[in-house]
Amino acid sequence: MGKTSDQLQGTLELLVLRTLASAGEQLHGFGIAERIKQVSAEALRVEEGSLYPALHRMNEEGWVLSEWGTSDNNRRARFYKITTKGRRRLTQLERDWARHVAAVKRVIRHA
């Protein structure tokens, strides 16, 4: 996997983990996608096809936990919540992101 692809995957992980950490409750995949869209004022739209493989990957990594429950409209859905390991990963991803943004800003200012 190339660097760009890694960064994109990292960005999706960052968005999902931050959304779950801030939500303070467990969310299903659709809820995660909708919340990212709302909070970013529709500037960011998670590619729904990429979301579920990413969630399952994060589940394997132990960053999120999943369990089946009932949604608001009374349907069975899989809900995700962030783990302690996931919070540590989130801290790391946010630090990497801040460093990346700072580097791009420096280039914009001085190049």
């Binding site: 590619e47 729904e48 096809g49 579920y52 493989p53 399952h56």
Partner: peptide, 20 residues
């Protein structure tokens, strides 16, 4: 249309599950 290929997504979910 927005979702894309369900078969492809399921394949990627499988790969994610089997990564370890």
């Amino acid at each position: 249309e927005q979702f894309g290929s369900v078969a492809q997504i399921k394949q990627e979910m499988w790969e994610a599950r089997m990564m370890n």
